[in-house]
Design a protein around this nucleic acid. Structure first.
Lengths: 348, 348
DNA sequence: CTTGGCACTCGGGTTCGGCGAGTGCCAGGC
DNA sequence: GCCTGGCACTCGCCGAACCCGAGTGCCAAG
């Protein structure tokens, strides 16, 4: 569609807005009544015919009103939508809610709940990606017998831990000192390094260890390697699934599969990853996926709005998931606002 | 109802079984056909009249079949149900699935997924309660600047950690040694103690610390106190919410509120707690809540089957949540089987 | 290019019977 | 005394017929 015809675009926008608010096919008469388009229904009908021809709208059955197609929503989101700015009260609420967080886990938890609540849809927050995170410190704590606890701390504030059984330990009394020495060597080798790189450095540590202790070192280092790998693993948190069922019975047909997909965090991770890569619609950091674009992930009739967040660079994504006919302007504004506040909080 | 009339009980059992499998009101004719009751429909009708009189069954509308009431299910569960033993294949599957777990978190995660899958309902697993857990070790790791990481390890395998900013530290270079000394004193004071008791011992540690370091000690100990409190906090994990929507449209009216309640872990914790206390129906460790008994928790038309689990003593509960008209014998058998395997695994 | 008019379509809601499953009651038989 | 077959009655469900109205497409005129 050329930009030429302003009114046709206005009609599309009006159709999207009305349909989103009423959930019913919208006809030409209702359209001229609710929006001051300054022309008669007949004219609108002509425009509608063209819009339908071009695939932006469709009619569920002959002699019913029109509803937007995925393509129609796409155009709306890309070129027609004006994000609805949040009210000062809402901004304050967001800030107040997030400021109370004490912890990275807490920040993520609060964020996902907040998003679900203000958008009244399902919310998804990806944990800050650790592929770029660096090792801040590694601690090895003997906890009696052959057991020791490994603790890995990254500079993003994430903590991974693991209990390791040191089977090859000869002298149990000497073990604590051995471990302490090992810890110091490990720290010297990996502190400040990125996780992936750190994993590679570890082999050198084993080789450099004293002859009698290579076995112990190998065991501990192997466990630490797992820890690093676990640290690299992406995680997501969701909330507000109950909002999906409220948001209208029309999604209820596919509700089952959507809920299923939401429980499979692997699917969500792929979704988030894909959105990060392609940046389908980029308005600021906002990215929107509409309807059939998510079908391969088992998410029919579903749209997703996400935004990158993080201190300075984009560490991860957060967003909202709901029925295709969601209120994009408000949702997008909310996602953007929350992502900004979260980024700010993480910078401290 | 007296025990006297065996046939009446048989009729109730038959009604429950048929209704659960067909989801339709069951009439007298269908009943004598499907179950060899050896009497005529007319006789059954008389029995039904009595059962209805006593509140065990009801008819949705005049001249329709009967459906069990909550009271009917209750009687069924308490006295009529024979748990359906799991097939050897199922037992093997359970074992194989749980044996792969590497971690407490992993055990819990696998368990909840497994329960959801084999019962085709929503599953709930409470983390092993820590009110009885004891402190195994406390570690304080300086991580640069004024920051330190507290790690609390309990003898149930749970690990809590927290980052603390030591604002009152005077000499930053001396801080690591201060913290190490503090750690040793703390460990001496609380190792082996139960969490609640440990929290009380902590104040003594601060008072006993050297004059110049009381401020630092107070800060660290305060954070550790929070850690202990967090460790005491109960947690639950859920899975299989998608099964709720599949399990029949009749629950769909209340589906929203059920999903909402499931997201509120507080509600689930209370539910689990209540079931632990009252032990509504106790068959082995199994406990069953039916329909309106859960209404105060925002769970309408919902039944819950749980069982205690843990090594030796009952540390927590796990179970399943579904529509009132669930298949109790199979569900109860599954919950019991899983709880036993999990208990066994935890004993290692 | 817009507009009012007009014929046409078709989905949704309503009404109306008929069908059938199921019940309660009763009188008779083991 | 309990069970049984028979019988009249009650309703919910289903399909058919029906109407209404919103909405469309097309056309001729401004």
């Amino acid at each position: 569609m050329g930009v030429s015809d302003d009114r046709r675009l206005a009609v599309l926008r009006a159709i999207v807005e009305d349909y989103v608010s009423t959930h019913e096919p919208v006809g030409s008469r209702a359209l001229v009544e609710r929006h001051r388009l300054g022309v008669s229904p007949a004219t609108i009908r002509n425009d509608m015919a063209v819009l339908e021809e071009e695939g932006y709208i469709a009619q569920p059955h002959t002699s019913a009103g029109r509803i937007p197609t995925d393509k129609g929503y796409r155009l709306f989101v890309d070129r027609l939508a004006n994000l609805k700015p949040m009210s000062p009260a809402e901004r304050r609420a967001i800030q107040a809610f997030l400021d109370g967080a004490v912890d990275l886990d807490d920040v993520v938890d609060r964020t996902v709940r907040l998003l679900a609540q203000i958008t009244r849809q399902a919310a998804v927050v990806q944990y800050p990606s650790l592929s770029r995170a660096a090792v801040r410190h590694v601690e090895v704590v003997p906890v009696g017998g052959r057991s020791a606890l490994l603790v890995l701390i990254t500079d993003t504030g994430r903590v991974e831990q693991r209990v390791v059984q040191v089977r090859s330990a000869g002298d149990l009394d000497a073990l604590p000192e051995q471990l302490a020495a090992l810890r110091d060597r490990v720290n010297a080798a990996v502190a400040g390094k990125r996780l992936k790189q750190a994993r590679e450095e570890l082999t050198a540590v084993v080789q450099a260890s004293e002859p009698g202790q290579t076995a112990v070192a190998a065991e501990v280092v192997a466990a630490l390697g797992e820890c690093l790998t676990a640290g690299l693993e992406e995680r997501v948190v969701i909330a507000g699934t109950a909002n999906l069922v409220r948001s209208g019975a029309d999604l209820s047909a596919s509700l089952g599969s959507v809920l299923e997909a939401l429980e499979e965090h692997v699917v969500l991770l792929r979704l988030v990853q894909e959105m990060a890569e392609e940046g389908v619609t980029d308005r600021g950091a906002l990215s929107v996926r509409i309807g059939a674009e998510n079908l391969h992930l088992g998410l029919p009739e579903t749209s997703v709005v996400t935004s990158g967040y993080g201190e300075g660079e984009v560490l991860a994504r957060l967003g909202v998931l709901g029925p295709t006919r969601m209120d994009y302007p408000t949702t997008m504004a909310a996602v953007r606002a929350v992502s900004r506040y979260v980024s700010r909080i993480l910078s401290q």
